[in-house]
Amino acid sequence: MRDRSQEGWEPKIVAFLCRWCSYAGADLAGVSRYQYPPSIRIVRVPCSGRVNAQLILDAFKAGADGVWVSGCHPGDCHYISGNLYARRRFVLLKRFLEFVGLEPDRLHFSWISASEGEGFAEKATEVTEKVRALGPCKRLHKEFDSNQENIW
């Protein structure tokens, strides 16, 4: 079992970024030399509307300590309305995951455009620090429970 006290523990955060905005925002943060923590693992998606509950939960299952989804500001979607569908889904999902006991700071959503390099770095830092404060995520993280005596 991983532990916060483990030396050199850094949070692992999976970021699903829309390729038309937040992904380019990450690029801009890079070329503009804004610093942000190296804990972010980016998965490029065609639209925040592509991100469903399965993808988010799969990241937690595989050991992510936090998940961050970022898309275009409402009104700016490349596909006109993908992020508007996503918005309802995210609001509902986040409240639902908190209902079953996921810590509120594990899961983050944001709207970041391609021109907001600084905003991207700031949000990445904020997400990292919030997740770091919680320590490693054990809820929804799958492990092989091989010890059969533990079942009883």
């Binding site: 595989a62 050991g63 092989f144």
Partner: peptide
Amino acid sequence: DERLGGQGR
């Protein structure tokens, strides 16, 4: 077969 990170069973 199930795989988790680098471990499998």
